Simulated assay, not measured.
Amino acid sequence: MKARGTLLTLLLAGAFGLCVGPFWWLAMAATQHDRDVFSWPPKLLPGGRLMENLQGLQESIGLDRVLVNSLVVAGLQTAGAVVVSVLAGYAFAKFDFRGRNLFFVLLLSTLVIPDTVMLIPIFRMMMDMGLIDTYPSVVLPGLVTPFGIFLMRQALRSMPDELLDAARVDGAGELRVLWRIVLPVNRPVIAALALFVFLGGWNQFVWPLIALRSPEMYTLPVATATLQGLSTTNYPQVLLASAIAAIPVMALFLVLQRQFISGLLAGSTKE
């Protein structure tokens, strides 16, 4: 039994090292000189060039500006997508209207369409509306998420209709029912959805690369790509930008981890 426990501990320690090791190397390499990034054996202790690399990153891409751009884009996209998903999911789950199942099947069918297929039509739409190189051009295409609507619809279907009908009998309108009853009960699912949408909005690269033209509007992934030149690449700055990009997502997950896990498990138990 003792040998089994020791073996399990070693396996868990190895798995922990495999998961955390790359992130540790990323953080340490971001503080090194360019010539030390790919040295062997790898340097796994902090170097002395963190402030120099940070200053160089600020001069190269305007770190503070691109961080604000990414936060604005991801934040607006998350808020909008959550609102649209909740409203649409509530309609599909609790309203009986003609063509409901057909519309829902058509919505789900869009999940099999690759995002790259939609790049040209969306670009034409944004260009015709004069929104290219603006925040709306990046935010608007991400407001409707079929996965988010599906997730909210499945979660809201489990709510008893009697509870909602009782609130309506007491004089509550649909928006009040949604705000006072539906949202508090489904807070874990909404938190999980918000985390998924924020992660996608924060990390998206292809569409912002197409829609944004001026460096002042670049998001962090797009600005980081500009650090890779044809002949030379400042790898410490690229790694530092990658490490900074991971911080907001990790912080958001730590804040919402309980709701996130509860949201993933919602509906997994048999009623």
Results as ranks from 00 to 15, higher is better:
38 F>T: 08
157 R>G: 12
63 L>F: 12
182 V>F: 05
153 R>K: 15
34 D>K: 09
83 V>F: 14
195 L>G: 04
247 I>A: 13
115 D>N: 11
1 M>T: 14
78 T>Q: 10
98 R>N: 00
166 A>I: 03
67 L>M: 14
33 H>P: 00
121 P>E: 05
249 V>W: 03
257 Q>D: 10
132 I>W: 01
27 A>F: 13
113 I>T: 13
74 A>T: 07
161 D>S: 14
24 W>T: 04
256 L>D: 04
145 T>A: 09
104 F>I: 01
98 R>A: 13
68 V>H: 01
158 S>A: 14
61 I>H: 04
39 S>Q: 13
123 F>C: 02
142 G>F: 11
32 Q>A: 05
44 L>N: 01
144 V>E: 06
97 F>S: 12
163 L>C: 02
23 F>A: 08
258 R>D: 13
103 F>D: 00
126 M>Y: 12
82 V>E: 09
152 M>T: 07
248 P>F: 10
197 V>G: 01
162 E>P: 05
202 W>S: 09
230 L>S: 09
236 P>M: 09
21 G>P: 09
199 L>S: 12
109 S>E: 04
247 I>W: 08
44 L>Q: 00
189 V>G: 08
54 L>R: 01
27 A>D: 01
30 A>G: 15
79 A>C: 13
255 V>F: 14
129 M>C: 10
140 L>P: 03
218 Y>M: 13
173 G>T: 10
164 L>V: 10
257 Q>H: 13
197 V>K: 11
105 V>A: 14
